Amino acid sequence: MQRRRFLATPLLLPTLTWPAEALLAYPPVTPGPRLAFPRDHGGHPDFRTEWWYVTGALDSPQPDVGFQLTFFRNRPGTAETLRSPLAARQILWAHAALTVPGERLRHTERAARANLGGSFSSVDCDVSIGSWRMHREDHAQGEVLRLQMQSPQFSFDFTLTPSQPLLLQGDNGYSRKSHAADLASYYVSWPQLRVDGVLVRDSGRQEVHGRAWFDHEWSTAILGGGAVGWDWLGINLADGGALMAFRMRDAQGRTLFAHAAWRDAAGQLRHFIAADVVFTPRRRWTSPRSGASYPVEMEIHFGEQLLRTLPVLDDQELSASQPAPVVYWEGLVKVEGSLRGRGYLEMTGYAGTLRL
């Protein structure tokens, strides 16, 4: 199969007025997808928004060190008619963060535009901006994901080895974000990835091991109907199972839509509809920078299960500036209750309506 690649360069936005006719209609997200892999690990450049997202918890040489690496792709829809190779038809950006107990959160970012410098593949997971890269590799022993990033704050080179199959969220990968069917995404998770590799930070170069969670999601529109953001939880359970739960939230903190997917240690997958999923804030932390108040301890009730998030650090707020300012909370939490484990809690829209 011919490999298609889309190149990117550091983001330099020209001062231009886009003609109205240059705007386009993006393809809709519809039920009944036939996802195929590794093809659908790759980019979907016709859609407006896409992200490849990995979070994890390291066990050695120090327990409860969290890491995150996310690549975002956006099709602005405002440069489709321009012939210049510098036209911003596809914009990439990436966030990386490191949580160390007892220390401050470290995070860094990069941004790019299409056709120079970086790339993403449309036939497999392979996205990069400069020396930052996330890609899938086939080996004789099986497939792996490779994460590589470097910055003055920290660097890592991790290999992620699957221990269980992909988890297609929602209806075989069609994940609704609202009671309205047109607000949805295509959404694939890969829980319980074994992490091996090297982390570089103040204490030097360390070999590390742990567990990670991979998400890949693409869509045209997922916020609507008064939603300002979401609360999302992805947990690798201690018994080998996996849990994903989210809710879409309005400006008053009310739940507009919710969903949960729980795959138990035996591999049985259960989905829980909006009426069966309840998020209840229990303790808040207020950012001294943004003033946003985040419910860092949250109870999540679905079916007969009740659990509570306990953050490794209260201050895991990320403030990014490229390609546009965005502030959100994303960090390593432990989960206790009827299910136990570790993973990441993401909360958006508390410092203002999230703009995608």
Rank of each mutant, 00 (worst) to 15 (best):
W190G: 01
G102H: 07
S287E: 14
A20F: 12
A258E: 12
V312A: 03
S287H: 12
T30S: 04
R176Q: 09
Q141N: 04
R282L: 01
G142N: 02
E297K: 07
G331V: 12
A181T: 09
Y186K: 08
M149S: 11
Y350F: 15
S189P: 04
N172F: 08
V200W: 15
L306K: 00
L82K: 03
I273A: 14
A251P: 01
N236K: 07
L13G: 00
M134S: 13
K177P: 01
G117V: 06
L354A: 12
V327C: 09
G341A: 00
T78M: 09
Y174E: 04
Q68C: 02
G253Q: 11
R146T: 10
A320V: 14
D276L: 03
L35G: 04
G341Y: 01
Y294L: 13
M149F: 15
L12R: 04
Y53Q: 12
P61D: 07
R34I: 02
A181D: 09
L167A: 12
L92D: 12
H95K: 11
P152N: 13
Q169E: 14
I129T: 15
H139E: 05
F37K: 01
D124P: 00
R247H: 11
F47Q: 08
A251Y: 03
D157P: 06
W230V: 10
S338W: 11
P162T: 03
L310R: 12
G241K: 00
V100N: 04
T70F: 14
R308Y: 06
T353L: 05
D239Q: 01
A351F: 05
S175P: 03
T99W: 08
Q252I: 02
R270P: 02
S319H: 14
E299G: 01
L69A: 15
E336Y: 00
A88H: 07
W230P: 11
L313N: 09
D40W: 11
L354M: 15
L12W: 00
L307C: 01
L86N: 02
T255C: 08
F154R: 09
R34W: 01
W51D: 14
G337R: 03
S175D: 12
V188K: 07
R342Y: 05
A351S: 04
Q68M: 14
R263C: 07
V208G: 03
G226D: 10
D215A: 07
T99D: 10
Y187W: 14
G118L: 03
I273Q: 15
G197R: 09
A114G: 12
E207Q: 07
M347G: 06
T17R: 11
F37W: 13
M244T: 08
S203M: 05
P165N: 02
L145P: 08
A260H: 02
W51E: 11
W218C: 13
G77L: 13
R4G: 06
P152L: 10
R201G: 12
R355W: 05
V65G: 01
S321K: 13
E109V: 13
F120K: 10
L24T: 14
V100C: 02
L339N: 00
L7Q: 13
A184L: 03
H41C: 12
H216K: 14
S219I: 13
L86T: 04
E80W: 02
S175I: 10
V335W: 00
D138N: 07
L24V: 15
S119I: 13
M149H: 14
